[in-house]
């Protein structure tokens, strides 16, 4: 564990998570969720869980972001609520 790296990464994770659920634009929410996944991937790699970090990078930041973008394309871009 490197606490300096934790101190940088953890506030960014929290900011990305809060921004992803408060932003009105669904496309921006998708991109913020991808950034959240990538930051979580770096956090896990930093904690020594390389396999989990690899899965998070491949699934969370890679494929599921593409899925969300494909889903946003067939719905409306902005949320109504």
């Amino acid at each position: 564990m490197i606490w300096q790296l934790d101190l940088i990464l953890l506030p960014l994770v929290i900011i990305c998570a809060i921004a992803a659920i408060t932003v009105r634009d669904l496309f921006s929410a998708t991109v913020l969720l991808g950034a959240f996944s990538f930051l979580m991937c770096m956090l896990w790699a930093e904690m020594g869980a390389v396999d989990v970090a690899f899965t998070e990078a491949a699934v969370g930041a890679g494929v599921s972001t593409a899925f969300f973008i494909a889903a946003v394309f067939v719905t409306t871009r902005r949320t109504k609520d």
């Binding site: 396999d51 491949a58 890679g62």
Partner: peptide, 10 residues
């Protein structure tokens, strides 16, 4: 690290 799931996703 890695495996079938991650490689399939890539």
């Amino acid at each position: 690290p890695g495996g079938g799931f991650q490689g399939g996703c890539i």
